[in-house]
Amino acid sequence: MHTIVVGGEKIGVSIGEWLVSEGHEIAVIDFDKDACVNIDEALGSVSVFGVRMNVNALQKAGAERADVVIATTTRDDVNLAACQIAKQMYQVPRTISIVNDQDNADLFDSLGIDLIVNLTNLLTSQIQEGITSNLVTQLMPISGTGNEKSLLTLRVPREYSNSALPLKSLPISEGAAVTLVIRRDGTVSFPDETIMLQAGDEVLLIGSDVVERELRDFVARGPTII
């Protein structure tokens, strides 16, 4: 597999390291001569210096035999152009791009980039996860569904240590689905009607923003005393 990474900053080099360890042949394009020296020190002689993002830069990196192009720069115009040149001029089967400005995520998607990594979203959801009071978090958006769903996780709060929470009592409205239950001891169960959740269990599910809000309200209310 030949993979081209565009941008040799921290993220690009880190992806490059992983690709090399997986046995990929790689080329890393950067537009700064000093960055190219760093890339070669970190990854072996794989850097390709480009004066700017254009057809020649991808050509020099071996685009005609590339299986994947991964655009990792902090500039969305560079990332978009890299993926569009790869697709249009070299029929590269898979293009992956970081999106720096959230507003560009939809655009990149509609322009046919195969996988979009929305940095701002990723960081926000990871920070949300770190804030313990936030028990429902988005793990990743599910693209191509047309109605904006995400993979969500719900952590069953401490309040449920004395009273179990039936899985079927969760407010899962139409179009949403529980995919997996991860017990606090790390064992995994597929969802079924009989599951009683306990504090520290985690539920993975797919649902919309509305489902996310409903779940958040539900866990915020705590155990109901009958």
Binding site: D76, D77, A81, Q84, D103, N104, D106, L107, L111
Partner: peptide, 16 residues
């Protein structure tokens, strides 16, 4: 003067 910047802006104008 930046080709790819122009290309991004043009595609934003059309799509957004």
């Amino acid at each position: 003067e930046d080709d790819i910047h122009n290309a991004l802006v043009a595609q934003i104008a059309k799509h957004t």
